[in-house]
């Protein structure tokens, strides 16, 4: 099975150096650590699990191609993910301000048509823009089925995937016949969330994503990484969403510490009138 995984490099919003807003109303991320979007890391881990026998993860029984949209220095992020097991990488040379989710989906469509993967696996959202849309847009542009917010995936002979979608109020199980677009949620990297056709059903992965061994980091420097131009992928480069300003959330006023449960209940009843 061949899997394409679009990934985004993001500024870590959980970083101690907080997101700032400039006087001109622009979001400033200087000082924040760059890292792969966590949901995209989960998508890479999912792709690796689907293309291997979990008891022998070094042998790749399929192909995992990763693609990112960003300037030259995002290649560091790509190399890091190649070191975890992805086979090759594509970088589309562009900066974030030239992109929105729709342009990204249109460009990805062109890459999918060229690469012909069986599955496009993505994180459900990037933790910077928090938009949650590229998988759905791409599926529509390709005319493919979409399965969003996957918390579990089980391969049916690599012809179809049975996907547990994490929805309000539970898990919605659907079976999609490939090719398809799948976006992943947090639980996808739990020990038994992904079952490939090559892995024994009893196999348990370590929780979370795998880390690259030093040897693999060295070897990843030699893995293929090609550059593409946005203009070669889509002629439709007009932004559909633009940001005119930004603000920081209002600080919540500091509360009080109560001494004991009795005081808490009394304040909730008489002061906050919340009971």
């Amino acid at each position: 099975m061949k899997i394409l995984v679009p990934i985004k490099r993001v500024s870590d919003p959980d970083n101690a150096n907080k997101v700032k807003v400039s006087a001109a109303g622009k979001i400033e991320t200087t000082g924040l650590e760059n890292k792969p979007n966590p949901f995209d890391e989960y998508a890479v881990e999912t792709a690796l699990r689907l293309t291997e026998n979990g008891t022998n993860p070094k042998a790749r029984l399929g192909e995992v191609v990763i693609v990112t949209f960003g300037p030259k220095d995002t290649e560091t992020t790509l190399r890091g993910l190649l070191a975890t097991g992805a086979d090759r990488a594509i970088r589309v040379d562009v900066t974030d301000d030239q992109l929105d989710g729709d342009i990204l989906a249109r460009a990805l469509k062109a890459i999918v048509e060229k690469e012909q993967p069986d599955v496009v696996l993505l994180g459900k959202q990037a933790v910077d823009g928090d938009s949650n849309q590229v998988a759905q847009l791409l599926a529509e542009y390709l005319g493919w089925p979409q399965a969003t917010f996957a918390g579990s995936i089980k391969s049916d002979a690599d012809k179809a995937l049975v996907i547990g979608r994490e929805v309000d109020g539970g898990t919605l199980n659907v079976k999609v016949t490939l090719p398809a677009v799948v976006s992943v949620d947090l639980r996808i990297v739990a020990p038994t969330s992904v079952t490939s056709m090559h892995t024994p059903a009893t196999h348990k992965y370590a929780d979370g994503v795998r880390f690259a061994a030093l040897m693999a980091i060295m070897a990843a420097k030699k893995k293929p990484l090609v550059e593409m131009k946005l203009a070669d992928l889509t002629g439709d480069v007009g932004l559909k969403i633009t940001y005119k300003g930004a603000e920081l959330p209002p600080a919540r006023k500091a509360g009080v510490k109560v001494k004991n449960v009795q005081e808490l209940v009394s304040k909730l009843k008489n002061e906050a009138k919340a009971l």
Binding site: I241, Y243, A246
Partner: peptide, 20 residues
């Protein structure tokens, strides 16, 4: 219509407009 949306895990709000 101007849309306010939480971004960066709620650490900032963006004021967005759609061009369509």
């Amino acid at each position: 219509l101007s849309y306010k949306r939480p971004m960066y895990a709620g650490n900032a709000y963006g004021h967005a407009e759609l061009t369509t």
